[in-house]
């Protein structure tokens, strides 16, 4: 696998405030890589460092295998980005904005390409309107169009669905998935919305207060080693005796005649279910609290 983006040991402080502490990131070709963290966790600082907007106090950044600082101008040609809000020139129209950033991109972008991108983001027909007349969703889509117009290999999208209505969020999500699947783009996206990352990304990095909390396949993080499994039942007074001296005993968090709470891998649910049924326990329901949302809240709640 080609590594598109790699950063090692990044640190950045603003005064006494440590924004990013010893962060590593590694994005491979074709991945949709999610960067997850609450507002102020250091996502934007990290993204700005990856784009050369903020200078890290220490650490190295490599893009397409090259040291970022040494070939910054050349490397930036292969990146398209949205950083936080989709701010563009309000007094220019959509086409003018696209044309402006396309010219700055270092590629010779043809007019046809601009229309192609406009069509892709669903802005065709509105390109001659001043951007100040656009809705936030339209601006966000224009922002993505600007990131895309010069056909970069890597897209860095910082909070691309921020402030959008549910339909807008769905549209952007579909667009990102389409870009990944149909156009084979490598995408680094950040969000403070967990289900968003869950729905779009294959890999993710969770950061909190500038530090790495967890990194890996989204699937693996969603299926953590220790989920909270809650088994409800009709009142069954012998439940403790059933569990006692079995391998399940060590997973018990709480045990009542009508409820058992265990801490264990979700993959064990069918087995404990089978075990309890065989012992004649009248199970009424099994609930597993292992969604990314809860997991994330657990991780980041102090």
């Amino acid at each position: 696998m080609d590594i598109v983006l790699e950063a090692k040991g990044l640190n950045k402080s603003f005064g006494n405030q440590h924004a990013v502490i010893d962060l590593d990131i590694r994005v491979e070709k074709g991945q949709v890589y999610g960067l997850l963290g609450q507002n102020g966790a250091g996502k934007s600082t990290l993204i700005r460092m990856l784009l050369g907007l903020i200078f890290p106090d220490s650490g190295d950044i490599f893009l397409m295998g090259d040291q970022f600082n040494s070939k910054k101008r050349h490397l930036l040609k292969n990146i398209g980005a949205i950083i936080e809000r989709p701010d563009v020139y309000n007094y220019l129209d959509g086409f003018e904005n696209l044309n402006f950033f396309a010219t700055l991109s270092g590629h010779s972008v043809k007019k046809e390409r601009i229309y192609e991108v406009l069509k892709m983001v669903g802005l065709l027909g509105r390109e001659k309107d001043k951007v100040k007349t656009y809705s936030l969703g339209m601006k966000q889509r224009l922002g993505i169009a600007i990131a895309l117009v010069h056909d970069p290999a890597l897209l860095i999208l910082d909070e691309p669905t921020n402030g959008l209505d549910p339909q807008g969020i769905a549209d952007i999500r579909n667009l990102i998935l389409q870009l990944s699947k149909e156009h084979n783009k490598t995408i680094l996206l950040s969000s403070h919305l967990l289900h968003e990352v869950e729905q779009m990304a294959s890999h993710m990095l969770i950061i909190h207060k500038g530090k790495k909390i967890k990194e890996g396949l989204v699937r693996a993080i969603i299926q953590p080693e220790e989920s909270i499994v809650e088994i409800s039942m009709l009142i069954y007074l012998k439940i403790e005796d059933v569990i006692k001296n079995t391998p399940w005993e060590k997973h018990i968090v709480e045990i009542n005649p009508n409820k058992i709470v265990l801490k264990m891998n979700q993959t064990n649910i069918p087995y404990i279910n089978q075990f309890l049924v065989e012992k004649g326990v009248p199970i009424t329901g099994i609930h597993s609290e292992n969604s990314l949302e809860n997991y994330f809240l657990n991780l980041t709640n102090d």
Binding site: K72, L76, R85, D87, F101, L104, S105, G106
Partner: peptide, 14 residues
């Protein structure tokens, strides 16, 4: 202030 500076600076222009 407008927010366009950061976008301009992600373009390959020193």
């Amino acid at each position: 202030n407008m927010g366009t500076l950061r976008l301009v600076l992600t373009k390959p222009i020193s």
